[in-house]
Amino acid sequence: MADNIFEVSDLRVDVADMTRKPLFGPAPRLEILKGISFTVPRGVVLGIVGGSGSGKTTLGRTMVRLAEPSGGRMLFDGHDIAHLSDAAMRPLRPRIQMIFQDPLSSLNPRLTVGRTVAAPLNARANDPRVGEALEHVGLPAEFAQRYPHELSGGQRQRVGIARAIAMRPEFILADEIVSGLDVSSQAQVLMLLEKLVAELGLTLAFISHDLSVIRRLCSRVIVLRSGEIVENAATADLFERPQHAYTRELLDAIPTPDPSIRW
């Protein structure tokens, strides 16, 4: 078992740039990730921040191999998964899970919560592991019979989390999972994540553009700007001694309560 659950070196992702495609011939390539290197040590909660369009989602989707990188290496527990085929990737899938941003679209609308959580386990909806996973995320076991549209936004996101942890993965990627929720459900989901990380010994990569959320949850942070890492530091260091101008810009954008304003 490698110490680093992920070792990413010189990761590149590009897509065909259809806006500049000539009438004939192939479209030019547009680089979205421009050679990214970082490691994710086991048991760490890694924050990935950056402005809109900086490539966070692309990086996340590549790490869980929903997308294939165009270059570089990506070691998961010592295996290079950068270019594995779907079939070769399948045995590793249960160890790498993802929680999606939009819980409504990431839950199958015509399957009950129980079946949604049970399917990846190849189990039935009344399998004890389903109830256990729901309990872990603070949902009553009866919710297994509900359909996603019968839940609130925060409850749906909990189901998304339950599905991911039910497989007992080693690594979970969470892409902006609280940005669609109101403030109080955000706080609840974050608290839940903190608890799960501690209880289950998860390694988590947490994508967000909200630095206050990152500060609370993550022990390390990488800052992305237009497909490049501009800073990679422990959270405390980053917030106290930001090295890069872009990081300072992001930090300044955090709204702080201003005592000079009267109600």
Binding site: V64, I96, R110, A119
Partner: peptide
């Protein structure tokens, strides 16, 4: 839809995704 991506992350084969995730919809 993301639930199809989610099925891929869960390790479903393409055929299984089609039959158990997309067909009901």
């Amino acid at each position: 839809m993301d639930y199809v991506h989610s099925a891929k992350v869960a390790g479903f084969t393409r055929l299984r995704t089609l039959a158990t995730e997309i067909l009901p919809n």
